[in-house]
Computed example of a mutant assay.
Amino acid sequence: MRVVVTRPENSARRTAERLRNLGHQPVLLPLTKAIHHPEIAEAALSGPHAALAVTSAEAVRVLSLLGERLNPYLGQTLFAVGETTAKAAEEAGFRNIRSGAGTGAELAELIAGYASTFDAPLLYLAGKPRSPKFEEGLRTNDVPFVTSEVYDMTPIAYDEVFIRSILLDPPVDAVLLYSRENARLFCDFAAPHLKELASVQFVCLSDNVAEIIPREFHRNIKIASHPDEDGVLALL
């Protein structure tokens, strides 16, 4: 299958290698790039907090830019949204990692079980834009927290001729969508060609991502049984 990978470039390369090993042809179309703000992360870490929370490996990459200045915080409890983010945190040197099941809502439920031990707010190191599900879950569970936006995911501009060549020369069979924002951007780019992409599969990380897909393509949606890359690739 020709499979469009919409993830940012660093993550896309790893996904492309996995696709090749599975016998598929990856088509790289990064829709966003990360702008890191390590100075904001450092300032946030210096404030009072009981533990850390990250819902993306991108936030961990920002923390890694601090180098030795991160060392005083590596023993703190870090809540990671899923196994991939937890692995990134482990590689960055964090030693006390608690991993959620893969979604922001599930991570909030996990943290709620520890909140009674907090003597300061949870520090959520976030990106922009992001899904509100994690923060909504924290509020629902009365978990005190502060959010620090330590990176921005900015859209990459492509002209229509390039998009057409990527998607239709020859036609792609599937597109991997890991976030609501990437789903929105892909559908915007693909809108002029949707009739020619009538059979393309929209392979989504979660129900939350799938909500963005236009109604006429709902029959083409596949949703991972568990919200991680293994779950996504198992659908191909």
Rank of each mutant, 00 (worst) to 15 (best):
R2C: 09
V4P: 02
V4W: 03
V5G: 03
V5N: 08
N10P: 15
S11H: 08
A12M: 06
A12S: 14
R14S: 13
A16N: 00
R18W: 11
R20C: 02
R20G: 01
R20K: 15
L22Q: 13
L22N: 04
P26R: 06
L29Q: 04
L29E: 00
P30V: 13
P30K: 04
A34E: 05
I35K: 10
I40W: 01
I40A: 14
I40F: 03
I40T: 15
A41K: 10
E42H: 10
E42I: 03
A43Y: 02
A43T: 14
A44T: 10
P48G: 03
H49Y: 12
H49G: 09
A51F: 08
A51W: 09
V54F: 13
A57T: 13
E58G: 09
A59N: 08
A59V: 10
V60H: 04
R61T: 11
V62A: 05
V62Q: 11
V62H: 09
S64K: 14
S64H: 07
S64W: 01
L66A: 09
L66W: 06
L66H: 02
E68N: 11
E68P: 01
L70I: 14
L70P: 08
P72K: 01
G75S: 14
T77H: 08
F79K: 05
V81D: 07
A86I: 01
A89Y: 03
E90K: 14
F94W: 04
N96S: 07
A101D: 11
T103P: 03
G104I: 02
L110M: 05
L110S: 03
I111F: 01
Y114S: 02
A115W: 07
S116V: 08
A120P: 05
L122C: 09
L122N: 07
L122S: 06
L123D: 02
L123G: 03
L125G: 07
A126W: 00
A126E: 02
R130S: 09
S131L: 10
S131M: 09
P132D: 15
K133S: 14
T140A: 12
P144M: 04
F145S: 02
S148L: 02
S148E: 15
E149F: 11
Y151D: 08
Y151A: 05
Y151G: 06
D152W: 03
M153P: 00
P155T: 07
I156Y: 05
I156Q: 05
A157H: 12
Y158L: 01
F162H: 14
R164H: 13
S165F: 00
L168V: 12
P170F: 10
L177D: 09
A183M: 04
A183Y: 09
R184T: 12
L185S: 06
F186W: 11
F189Y: 15
E196M: 06
L197M: 12
L197R: 01
S199V: 08
S199R: 13
V200D: 09
V200N: 01
Q201L: 14
Q201H: 13
F202N: 04
C204N: 06
C204P: 07
N208G: 04
V209F: 06
A210W: 10
I213R: 12
R215W: 03
E216D: 12
H218A: 05
N220C: 11
K222H: 13
K222Y: 05
A224S: 13
S225V: 11
P227M: 07
E229M: 14
V232E: 11
V232W: 03
L233F: 15
L235F: 10
